[in-house]
Amino acid sequence: CHSECLGNCSQPDDPTKCVACRNFYLDGRCVETCPPPYYHFQDWRCVNFSFCQDLHHKCKNSRRQGCHQYVIHNNKCIPECPSGYTMNSSNLLCTPCLGPCPKVCHLLEGEKTIDSVTSAQELRGCTVINGSLIINIRGGNNLAAELEANLGLIEEISGYLKIRRSYALVSLSFFRKLRLIRGETLEIGNYSFYALDNQNLRQLWDWSKHNLTITQGKLFFHYNPKLCLSEIHKMEEVSGTKGRQERNDIALKTNGDQASCENELLKFSYIRTSFDKILLRWEPYWPPDFRDLLGFMLFYKEAPYQNVTEFDGQDACGSNSWTVVDIDPPLRSNDPKSQNHPGWLMRGLKPWTQYAIFVKTLVTFSDERRTYGAKSDIIYVQTDATNPSVPLDPISVSNSSSQIILKWKPPSDPNGNITHYLVFWERQAEDSELFELDYCLKGLKLPSRTWSPPFESEDSQKHNQSEYEDSAGECCSCPKTDSQILKELEESSFRKTFEDYLHNVVFVPRKT
């Protein structure tokens, strides 16, 4: 048989008469490798580009789960590009990614509803959504962080984005990388972005840091009482949809009607710091009717980097990364020049730590249904340095008659930039024990000054392991946590139920 035959053949030295091919099969003959313009397919066939392209389009058009959109890589027609490569849609070739590779997620039936953290986790790592997304989240724990972890990498949506009755959302900033909504599939009414009845939605994105392009379709905003109209108009300008909307697409009466839409800028007039305090004062603000001013709200939190936005980490279910302080308005003076500047002394802060701070007014709604208010920009203030805590785990070892090696770990709280350490030492008198000992005694162990690591005695271990207080009263049991108490109650309830079950099964009433 021919060298490319495997198993047997019907005619000697003829690659077209093989029972099976050793390498690849091409047009009725066995070959060692697939010549151009053919590609290896499933490690035994040679196919042309049209064959591989037909497989790709067949799966793409069917949208069946589990099928493969075949691509070409290293002269092979394979189910998908290997790690580190992405497909070129024009020629199906796998090309190296520039940075992290995109991950295209194809949605069944063309859309997916995100109504819980669990459903959001199914899209973790996706960068391109081939379909439409509907966000409908009523509640949950730590929602802002969970949504950002699972949806934060999405850069492109081919269909539309719909935010509907998501009472738990305060902001859409968890879509931190969303840059493009194509609108290839539109919501009824030709809408590519749809926001309806979101009672706590206050911000779409921080438009000073976020760009969003909507290729096709219109915007729809109705019944978002805490979303200011200025935020919607800003989205029109940034996304390129200005002029597409009709009169009733953006409701003037049901958007922002319960919001404090600040239209003035508060400026800080005085800032002073110490290692654990920050004193702030800002310019006074009074609405047209000074009785509408209820006070100020001061927001602050630790910020290692200057990239904080107002609604980071917030949701309507209680999660809030900001510390909020309510401040009463100052006494009002008739003389504008003698107006008191409101302020606040922030206490209990960490030394040498940068804080993000902003302040906003708290006002009631005027009778004319106009909203007044003022808010400052987010500023960054760093507390002063102070003395560091003591170095940890000092170790001293003498390696000769004239040297001592000293080692330690950095302090747990540096409280500033540590530039150097101060080492103090003092000579001590020799131990009298060394002169009084009889060095001729056998088995004498000389006193040693070398360091030995501390260890816990058996008594201390027994005390720590004991669940009861000892007789001397030195140790006591740790208080039980809520989960331990709940577990004990469940076990007790189970024992009672099981005992009742045994009584009912074992003891049967005697027939009379």
Rank of each mutant, 00 (worst) to 15 (best):
L153V: 13
S116A: 05
N190K: 15
H233P: 08
F175T: 04
P287K: 01
T309S: 15
L186R: 13
Q245H: 14
G373T: 04
I395K: 15
V390N: 13
L180G: 10
Y167P: 10
K209A: 11
L266I: 04
R179W: 14
Y305C: 14
I250L: 13
L266Q: 02
E155N: 08
S338G: 13
T386Y: 12
L279S: 06
G373A: 02
K350A: 11
N198A: 04
E231G: 14
T309M: 03
P336I: 03
S333L: 08
T113A: 08
I188K: 07
E264V: 04
F220Q: 10
W207C: 07
S366P: 05
D315G: 11
N340P: 11
E237Q: 05
R176L: 06
P304L: 15
R176Q: 15
N387I: 12
N340V: 15
E146A: 11
R164P: 07
P394F: 04
E236N: 04
S269H: 13
Q403H: 14
Y194V: 12
S208A: 14
V308G: 03
K226H: 14
F290I: 06
R244F: 11
G295W: 12
T113H: 12
K375L: 08
F175Q: 00
L293T: 01
G152M: 10
E302H: 14
R244C: 09
L293I: 02
D312H: 11
Q199F: 04
L279M: 15
V128R: 08
W207Y: 10
W322Y: 08
D292P: 03
D377K: 12
H106F: 03
S338E: 14
T215V: 14
L123P: 04
S158I: 11
G139N: 04
N198P: 01
S269C: 14
E302G: 15
C126A: 01
G243V: 00
N334L: 11
G256R: 02
N150F: 08
W408V: 00
Q354L: 11
A374T: 04
V363P: 02
S192A: 08
T361S: 05
L294R: 12
F268Q: 01
Q216M: 14
Q354W: 13
F311G: 09
G189K: 03
T241S: 06
V238E: 13
T383I: 08
S158L: 15
T241Q: 11
T361E: 04
L362P: 00
G217K: 14
G110T: 07
S208L: 14
M346T: 08
Q339S: 07
R247I: 10
W322A: 10
A374E: 02
S132V: 01
D115Y: 06
S116Q: 02
L227D: 01
L172Y: 06
Q245W: 04
G139P: 00
P391M: 02
L294I: 12
F290T: 02
M346A: 11
S333R: 14
S396L: 07
D315L: 13
L123V: 08
D115W: 11
L204N: 07
G125R: 02
A145L: 12
R281A: 14
E237I: 10
K301T: 03
S239R: 11
K177S: 12
A149R: 11
K218R: 09
Q199S: 06
P410F: 08
S158T: 10
K407W: 14
N307V: 10
I271D: 02
A259G: 05
K350P: 05
Q314E: 13
D312A: 13
A316N: 13
M346F: 07
F311T: 07
F311A: 12
D289L: 01
Y223P: 03
P304Q: 02
S132H: 05
L227F: 04
C228M: 00
T241C: 05
N387T: 13
L219V: 09
F220T: 15
E237A: 09
S208R: 12
K277A: 09
T383M: 04
P336R: 09
G240P: 03
E302Y: 11
E302S: 12
W207L: 10
L107R: 06
P410R: 14
Y380I: 02
N334Y: 13
K177T: 13
S230H: 04
S321K: 14
K277F: 05
N142L: 14
K407S: 14
S173G: 08
K209M: 11
S376W: 01
S400D: 15
P287S: 01
V128C: 07
S239W: 13
A374R: 01
L143P: 04
L169S: 12
T127V: 14
P388W: 01
Q245V: 07
I135E: 01
T215W: 03
Y300Q: 15
R281K: 13
S274V: 06
L252Y: 07
Y223V: 04
L280I: 12
G348T: 02
P351L: 02
M235F: 09
Y270R: 12
L293V: 02
P329L: 08
K234C: 13
T185L: 09
D115C: 08
D367N: 05
A303Y: 14
S158K: 11
T118M: 09
N255M: 02
D206T: 07
P394M: 05
D115F: 07
N198W: 02
V238A: 14
L293P: 01
S269V: 13
F299T: 02
L186D: 14
K162C: 09
E109W: 15
L204P: 06
T386S: 08
S132F: 00
K234V: 06
